[in-house]
């Protein structure tokens, strides 16, 4: 475990209100896939965890939700920080995790290794929080599905290789599947498993 001081600092200044605010952004984001949300309060997440990713961890994780971290995050102060502030245990088993955090520029683990729920209980699935370079620049994609009136445009810079291919396979599992949150610094957007992602034309 890395430097303890990094692990103990930060957190929500007002846990009750801050976690409610972050959750509401997330609820609205899941209900309206692809809309970009901005987290207003800093949580002092240790690098390389972004602000939005850190805030989501604090708002939703606790000792009922095993958290999976990439090798790089494992080596950072992040495991200590997440455990200290949320009470969540860090697991090495992808299939056990309810939340997984992936920093920018890392190879994307296969979605299929995470819990996708069962046909009877499709809710017992992981939520993957993936950091990208930017959410207002880069590759233009088009989203459609529940929560979107017709289509919604989305721009992502630094989307991991193979993401769209994996997403297509994930969507084919419906009602099973993982749900994804793309984060970039203090911003994030949600991609529930129902969303159809296509390359924007022109």
């Amino acid at each position: 475990m890395a430097v303890a001081a990094d692990s103990l600092t930060g957190g929500f200044a007002q846990p009750v209100y801050d976690s409610q605010a972050v959750f509401r952004l997330m609820m609205d984001g899941m209900a309206r896939p692809g809309t970009v949300k901005t987290v207003a309060t800093d949580v002092g997440a240790p690098a390389p965890l972004g602000l939005a990713a850190g805030a989501i961890a604090l708002a939703l994780c606790d000792h009922d939700t095993p958290v999976w971290l990439t090798a790089a995050l494992q080596k950072s102060a992040v495991p200590g920080w997440v455990s200290f502030h949320s009470g969540a245990t860090i697991t090495r088993e992808k299939a056990e995790a309810r939340f997984a955090f992936i920093e920018a520029g890392t190879a994307l683990p296969s979605f299929g290794l995470f819990a996708s729920g069962t046909q009877e209980y499709p809710d017992r699935s992981a939520t993957l929080v993936i950091e990208v370079a930017a959410l207002d620049d880069g590759k233009a994609l088009t989203l459609s599905g529940p929560g979107i009136a017709a289509t919604r445009g989305m721009r992502v810079k630094g989307l991991p290789d193979g993401f769209t291919g994996q997403w297509t396979m994930n969507r084919a599992l419906f009602p099973r599947g993982v749900d994804v949150v793309l984060t970039a610094g203090d911003r994030f957007l949600c991609l529930p498993r129902t969303v159809l992602i296509t390359l924007a034309e022109g």
Binding site: S19, F23, M27, A59, L60, D64, D123, S125, R193, T194
Partner: peptide, 20 residues
């Protein structure tokens, strides 16, 4: 707060699987 987090997680999954 723990109960709220549990319910909030359930709400997010409910939205991701409409009608389930």
């Amino acid at each position: 707060e723990q109960t709220k987090r549990m319910i909030r997680r359930a709400i997010l999954k409910a939205i991701a699987i409409p009608g389930y």
